[in-house]
Amino acid sequence: MASPAVDDYLKTIYHHTEWQDERITPSQLAAVLGLAPSSVTEMVKKLAAQGLVTHRPYGPVALTDTGRLRAAAVIRRHRLIETWLVEEFGYGWHEVHDEAEVLEHTVSDRLLDGIDVRLGRPRFDPHGDAIPDAAGVVHREEFVLLADAAPGHRGRVLRVSDRDPELLRALVDAGIEVGIDVEVGGEGTVRLAEADLPLPPGAPDAVWLTA
């Protein structure tokens, strides 16, 4: 049965391992969702009973194949809507997340398919996150977190986390956006067009480059 609350849990679990391998714990899930740990524990039990996640007491939570397909479907909706808002309505990439959070639960499948066709079936949203196709499949290049990249590493900006709108605005002001080529400089800098750019606080842990 469709449920925004269930979808939010599945989406959060999916997000957690999308760009790294450590599974999410119930306490991390509670922190991200802003909920009491006891509430999260009860919901995780319900999700497990529905065959959407696997979980053992005090251990991490992982999506089952069924849960991953459902999560991918919700994320597909969210990211297509974000792309639509940027491409068709002129939203900034720092403005679309909250709008998409609302619309993803109300847009019909027919309208979503129309948006997908209208946009030329995009594979990535404005932040560089992969848009799952209708079968839940994603296409992604090898990547490295900027904070983990060695000085001198050259790569294309693949993805920028959309969690902090203020950081997104600061990155735009600094000239950093998805698709540009950069070279990792000294601590807290990248080199772009022969110029060293200081990065806003938090950027090294929110930007991913091609490996």
Rank of each mutant, 00 (worst) to 15 (best):
M1C: 05
M1V: 07
A2I: 15
S3Q: 07
P4C: 02
D8N: 01
D8F: 00
Y9D: 13
L10R: 07
K11F: 00
Y14K: 13
Y14W: 10
Y14F: 09
H16L: 06
E18D: 14
Q20G: 07
D21F: 15
D21E: 15
R23T: 08
A30G: 03
L33Q: 09
G34Y: 05
G34P: 03
G34S: 06
A36R: 12
T41Y: 05
M43G: 03
V44R: 05
K46N: 06
K46V: 01
A49T: 09
Q50M: 10
V53W: 12
P57H: 11
Y58E: 10
Y58W: 10
G59D: 08
G59H: 06
V61H: 03
L63M: 09
T64Q: 13
D65A: 15
R70F: 02
R70C: 04
V74A: 14
V74K: 13
V74I: 15
R76S: 14
R79P: 01
T83Q: 14
T83M: 11
W84P: 02
L85V: 10
L85M: 10
E88R: 11
G90A: 02
G92H: 05
E95Q: 15
E95H: 14
H97G: 01
E101F: 12
V102A: 12
L103W: 03
L103A: 09
E104I: 02
H105F: 10
D109L: 11
R110F: 08
L112N: 09
D113Y: 09
G114N: 15
G114A: 15
G114R: 14
I115T: 15
I115F: 14
D116S: 11
D116C: 06
V117E: 05
R118A: 06
L119M: 13
L119T: 14
G120T: 05
F124V: 06
P126C: 05
P126H: 00
A130C: 08
P132E: 04
A134G: 10
G136V: 02
V137E: 13
H139G: 01
H139K: 10
F143P: 01
V144R: 00
V144T: 00
L146M: 12
D148K: 15
D148P: 06
A150H: 10
G152C: 05
G152S: 07
R156S: 11
L158T: 03
L158P: 03
R163G: 09
D173Q: 14
A174E: 10
G175D: 11
V178H: 06
V178T: 12
I180F: 11
R191Y: 03
R191M: 01
L192S: 00
A193C: 04
E194N: 03
D196H: 05
L199K: 08
P200L: 01
P201Q: 02
G202A: 05
A203W: 13
D205N: 07
A206I: 08
V207M: 03
V207F: 02
W208M: 01
W208R: 02
T210E: 13
